[in-house]
Computed example of a mutant assay.
Amino acid sequence: MVKLHDLEFEPYLDQKTLQKSVKELAERIAADYANKTPVFLGILNGAFMFLSDLMKYYEGDCEISFTKLASYEGISSTGEVSTLLGAGNLKGKDVIVVEDIVDTGSTLEHIVEVLKNEGVASYRIASLFLKPEAYKKTLPVDYVGIEIPNKFIVGYGLDYNGLGRNISKIYQLKSDPND
């Protein structure tokens, strides 16, 4: 059990499961980009651990960049996305957007619009986690590590109001026994 601020979280996924999924994603992406040099665009803050491990397993040439977006307050998405840090010049490049988690899809919709305006050659989306029940957009998520239920999770880069990103495993919000 882990307590962050006022909430308790219970174990959900271990490091071995996470690393297996990350390695498989890296291999799939490397096969698809065998003759290209993609730019991996990590969405901060959440994707930093996932992107770091993804790069350890990725065996092709690549570039790495970051952008910082915000759409969460507490354990809920606000539905509005703001850009806090830009990604730099991506014009004409093949971009792989690296997300920690896709739930409603608002962040993805925002970043894809930015990429189109930048004039990228192509883009694909890679996410360690996808919540199919919560996903409300039509954009394809090209590379998905693990599909999970629509429950709030922390650890491995994901946080609850700033805490929990440094936890090496994934924890989910403890269920209320009265539910």
Rank of each mutant, 00 (worst) to 15 (best):
D94V: 06
G60L: 01
F129P: 02
T138F: 13
T37E: 13
E80R: 07
I101C: 00
V81M: 09
S76D: 07
G74A: 15
S71P: 00
K23D: 12
V112L: 14
E27M: 09
D53I: 12
L128Y: 07
K36L: 14
C62E: 06
I29N: 03
K20C: 04
S21W: 07
S82T: 05
K136A: 15
I101F: 00
P38R: 12
K20E: 12
Y57V: 02
E80P: 00
L130V: 06
L115F: 01
C62H: 12
P132W: 07
V22H: 14
E113D: 12
Y72F: 13
A134N: 04
Q19I: 06
N35I: 06
A31R: 04
F129M: 06
K68R: 14
E118L: 02
F50G: 06
S122N: 06
A70R: 14
C62W: 06
L51Y: 04
F129R: 05
S65W: 04
V95H: 03
S21T: 10
P132F: 08
S122L: 01
L85P: 03
T37M: 11
E63L: 04
N45Y: 14
M49K: 14
A121V: 00
L90G: 03
T78L: 01
E118T: 02
S76T: 08
Y72H: 09
Y58V: 05
F40R: 10
T138A: 15
A121F: 01
I125H: 02
L85N: 04
G88W: 08
A26L: 08
D32C: 05
G74V: 13
N35C: 09
I96S: 05
E109D: 11
F48D: 12
A126G: 10
V98P: 00
L128E: 05
K20G: 06
G119P: 13
F40Q: 05
Y135V: 08
V98E: 00
S106N: 15
T138Y: 12
E118V: 01
G88T: 09
T37V: 10
G119Y: 15
K137V: 06
L69E: 03
S127Y: 12
Y123M: 12
C62I: 10
E73C: 01
E73V: 07
Y33V: 03
A34E: 02
L41H: 03
R28Y: 01
N35H: 11
L130H: 12
G86Y: 05
S76E: 11
S21E: 10
F48V: 11
V39F: 07
L54H: 02
M55T: 02
S65H: 05
E59R: 07
L115C: 00
I101M: 00
A70H: 14
Q19A: 08
G46M: 13
V39Y: 07
S82N: 02
T37D: 09
A47Q: 04
L90S: 03
V97E: 13
K56L: 03
K20D: 09
L54I: 03
V39Q: 10
A70W: 08
N89C: 07
D53M: 05
G119C: 15
E59Y: 03
S127D: 12
E113S: 12
G74Y: 14
K137E: 13
R124E: 03
I64W: 00
Y123L: 10
L90M: 07
V81H: 03
K116P: 14
